[in-house]
Design a protein around this nucleic acid. Structure first.
Lengths: 337, 337
DNA sequence: GTGAAAGCGCTAACAA
DNA sequence: TTGTTAGCGCTTTCAC
């Protein structure tokens, strides 16, 4: 069966292509008689508009791209879902692109050697630095997510990581903890994310008059639960003493929880724990996890607002927006009082 | 800055569009001199091919769509990742579509009122039945995933749910368990998935001479950990006795684990547990979860093989493929011996 | 309110 | 090996 084109419908209905197009688009100034006549032809022929023709003609794709390292990480999977919902509300489809945290692939994302794939791009870099992003900057509207510094030319949305880390640490201190370890310290040169979280952690400790002990920074080479679990096991084996663990994310917290369980250390009795991201998993572990919860709904709204402005032609300097977070308290580090 | 078109490059280099196109596509019969001349023009002008023009001309989009209910469910997030990898290997981009398990949205997926969005579609229905899928006129190549029956006209890939449920149940029986409850029994009319898993469960019990006790089917209204946890709590409150829980999926198993932890019931000492899907989470809970592991890599290969055949013009009857699964044994129901 | 026709940017059959 | 040109299917001024 040959594809039915707009022109076929026009011929069949004995009208012009313009009229058919008007009907397809629910253009209001079409007489009812005309409308039903055309609609009948559409139904009879089983016409469905070809998106590629439309896109070529309009220059718009109606698609946005969301790029980050890996959908199978719970935070990103849940973030993707939030963006899907928000994009749909705005009549955009969403294309997901994964970089696996590889520099090459991140470069490919921002350099976009092919034009017209999507109308705009939301990108959370893992590897690419601000300067390189600025260089590659091409003609597709771009909004950055995450803690890495953004070039001044590019819009950027993030939560205040220093404040959030401070909040989590203060909470642990308020629970009477003094030997608070940090799980997921990076072994190589610190990323902005790490620097910010460490900074908040130190702020809170210093403010409470607690000396910062470098031994309490438990390193991991990868961001997963296994690494975190083994970091905690090593710390215990080495006789490190701690009464709280502030974890770089929920995955690390889950690993830490597991390591403590294995050794019969009670949470939060002996050791309190905080996670980060407030993924679904945080609410179903035993004990459930207190976690920093970025306001991802707001994140998506702010990011897509800015992106749509760019798509609409805004050419001004990059905007830098901070969205809210909360500390969701659960069993692993319960609310006070 | 106005967009640079193929024609602009051709003019700039003093050659024809065809020649530029040849260079862009690395066509081999191009003299080196010509190639460098054109490439220079491309670089000077900063030309990047417009995908929409190309797509309209070729009739191909180079995109496939993967549709299921919800990316934030770990199984689907991990499945998406596997499909992304396999699609990329075949030079396809992947578009994710979510239905939220809503009939309307599933209909929209299979009816595809717009043509040319993607070259093919892989779809795991949650609500739509076989007959309705068959009815919807479809000009986009389709492969179905999951346990629902597929129309004979449509390709379909799944694992053998009956066999997998049998395997899991047999494993629990081999561990000496006799009062094996099923967590996540559907309250309404049973879906194919449920029917198959129940059937495997019953097979194994009957084969071992264990009577099937309807009280051991713990119902949940939603597929999440909370529901599963509360189902298990209710069962315990009602005085139900069981020494094993076969859970409909890992999420349910995680909820069950939590409920048992709360009551101080040891796993696997008092109660053994099996999950389903073998999501990452299964390996980091405490205790870690024995789980049915569908071979998702094979699933993606088989599905995309069939899809590419359809895209290539194959019009034959629907193929029905079964892919492998394994039972991954972990602490919650350890391997024997 | 409706029609005619010129693109949108690229590909590919056909020529040279 | 390179050039010419007619589409791909739709949108959209601009007339009527």
């Amino acid at each position: 069966m040959p594809r039915v084109r707009l022109e076929d419908v026009a011929k069949h209905a004995g009208v012009s292509m313009k009229t058919v197009s008007n009907v397809v688009h629910d253009y209001e100034h079409v007489s009812d008689r005309m409308r039903t006549r055309v609609q009948t032809a559409i139904d009879e022929l089983g016409y469905r508009p070809n998106l590629m023709g439309r896109r070529l003609a309009t220059g718009r794709t109606g698609m946005l791209s969301l790029a980050f390292s890996n959908v199978s990480l719970p935070y990103f999977a849940e973030l993707a879902r939030v963006f899907y919902a928000e994009a749909e509300r705005r009549d955009y489809r969403l294309l997901l692109q994964q970089t696996d945290a590889k520099v090459q692939r991140e470069r490919a994302i921002v350099s976009a050697d092919e034009a017209g794939l999507v109308d705009g791009l939301v990108f959370q870099p893992s590897e690419l630095g601000s300067t390189e992003i600025a260089q590659h900057q091409r003609d597709v509207p771009l909004v950055l997510l995450g803690e890495e510094a953004a070039p001044i030319s590019v819009d950027h949305v993030m939560i205040d990581n220093v404040a959030a880390a401070t909040r989590a640490t203060e909470h642990l201190i308020a629970l009477g903890r003094r030997k608070i370890a940090f799980v997921g310290h990076e072994t190589g040169p610190l990323t902005k994310t790490s620097l910010q979280r460490m900074s908040g952690y130190q702020n809170a400790l210093e403010h409470a008059g607690i000396p910062v002990d470098m031994n309490l920074l438990l390193p991991t080479t990868q961001y997963d639960s296994f690494e975190a679990a083994s970091a905690v096991r090593h710390a215990l084996d080495a006789g490190l003493e701690f009464d709280a663990l502030m974890c770089r994310d929920d995955l690390a917290a889950i690993g830490a929880l597991r390591a403590l369980h294995e050794r019969g250390i009670s949470v939060p009795g002996d050791v309190a724990i905080t996670g980060w991201d407030n993924t679904h998993a945080a609410s179903v572990t035993y004990p459930s996890l207190t976690s920093i919860a970025p306001d991802t709904a707001q994140l998506a709204v702010v990011a897509l607002d800015m992106l749509e402005e760019r798509i609409g032609g805004y050419l001004g300097v990059g905007r830098h927006r901070i969205v809210d977070f909360t500390l969701v308290t659960r069993e692993s580090a319960p609310a006070i009082g």
